[in-house]
Amino acid sequence: MTDKQNRTLPAQPALCRILDANLDRSREGLRIIEEWCRFGINSADLAAECKQLRQELAAWHTAELRSARDTPGDPGTDLTHPQEEQRSSIQHLLEANFCRVEEALRVLEEYGKIYDPNMGAAFKQMRYRVYTLESNLLAYRRYQQLLRSQLYLVTSPRDNLLQVVEAALQGGLTLVQYRDKTSDDAVKLDNVRKLCELCHRYDALLIVNDRVDLAIASDADGVHLGQQDLPVSEARKLLGPGRIIGRSTTNAEEMQRAIDEGADYIGVGPVYSTPTKPDKQAAGLDYVRYAADKSPVPWFAIGGIDINNLDEVLNAGAQRVATVRSIMEAEQPTLVTQFFISQLIRMQSLKAQKAQKALQGKT
């Protein structure tokens, strides 16, 4: 009997049950992802792609497949795994459901070849679209988180690294950079992986200083490059479009070059002299004012900023700041983090009120 003749026979109940279960699984997973696209990040385009995929799947979900369903007789309904019982963060939830959808589509692609000659090809293309959706969503989510982040913690090597960072995360921190110029690579990789898991648990981003390889190996959210590091374009080739790339700048020329290269954000400084970079001359508040007026990309004032000089940095036009010692060496990192964030929010509110009054004065 030929393959064509085989396909004209009624489908086996087991085959229909497999297709039905995986159509359900993929549609449910896409709906969970769609809800975050719609309500979590307010992306109409990404939500629309999820909905379109769900509708295309629904078109294949025929009465014949649904009628084969036998939930009471399915031994898989009692199977579970401890990891399925908990979700530590939004990122974990999204990753789990993308995995669920992609696996289901692969099953549909293979078994669908038996059920309908066109089914395998259709689900193969859907699977590739879901891969693209996943990349776009993660990139979009990371960038939106970057835009929302006002305080940036750059770490320094210390025995209680994880404890200090977690204390800052508990204070509302959403952006961390792992910086360590002295430890062995094995230690760095171990630290980055632990920090990545910790930051993602708090829905925060983790950026790796300098090392593209460590960022890739740990699945970190991006890298921060100094002036002597890889060009942004080369880092992008290695990291792909979904991760964040930042660049340190100390003057207007370096700023423009970083923007032209495609940096997602820039560091502006050092504003003050700092032992973190003893060989760097302070760029001063004039450069902060220049960045406030000229930079089209998000930027963080950095270098020697603490609770005593924060106001003058904000008054110079900074809306985002990065700090090292103020948090890493603090006795109470949570409280210091909360203070920084409260001052940043206060200044943002004052500027908004000032802009509104100016607008009202023109009417």
Score class of each variant (00 low, 15 high):
Q356E: 09
L46M: 10
I266S: 04
E329I: 06
T77E: 12
M1S: 11
P13N: 11
I259G: 04
V212Q: 00
R201S: 11
E331Y: 15
P13I: 08
S89P: 04
L350T: 10
I32R: 14
Q356K: 08
P157T: 02
P117E: 15
M328D: 00
G284R: 00
C37F: 03
L94F: 08
T8H: 12
Q52A: 14
V313N: 00
G222D: 04
S135C: 11
D116G: 07
C37K: 02
G284T: 02
I345S: 13
I90W: 14
S218K: 03
I114V: 09
M347H: 11
M328N: 00
A104R: 00
P75C: 11
Q348I: 06
A235P: 01
D264T: 06
K280Y: 14
A122Y: 09
Y111E: 13
P13A: 11
A121W: 10
I18V: 10
Q125G: 10
A47C: 08
C199K: 01
A204V: 02
R320Y: 01
Y143F: 09
M255Y: 11
Q163Y: 14
N209V: 05
Q256L: 14
T132H: 14
H224W: 02
E35A: 15
A139F: 04
R193P: 01
N191I: 01
G269N: 03
E254L: 08
P241K: 13
S273E: 15
R247K: 15
C50F: 04
D20E: 09
V336G: 01
L205G: 03
R100Y: 03
Q170G: 14
E134M: 12
V154F: 02
E134L: 10
Q356M: 08
K51T: 12
E102T: 12
T132E: 14
V107N: 04
L175N: 00
D20T: 05
R257A: 10
S233Y: 06
P72W: 07
Q144I: 07
I216F: 06
K351T: 11
L350E: 09
K113P: 04
A58T: 09
L161Q: 07
A59Q: 14
E49A: 15
R106F: 05
A258D: 05
G226T: 02
D210F: 06
M119W: 06
E103A: 10
K354Y: 09
Q55M: 10
F123G: 02
R27V: 05
S342K: 08
R346L: 12
T276L: 06
Y143R: 10
R247G: 06
C37T: 07
S273F: 15
Y140K: 15
N308L: 13
S67W: 07
R211F: 11
D24V: 15
P270L: 03
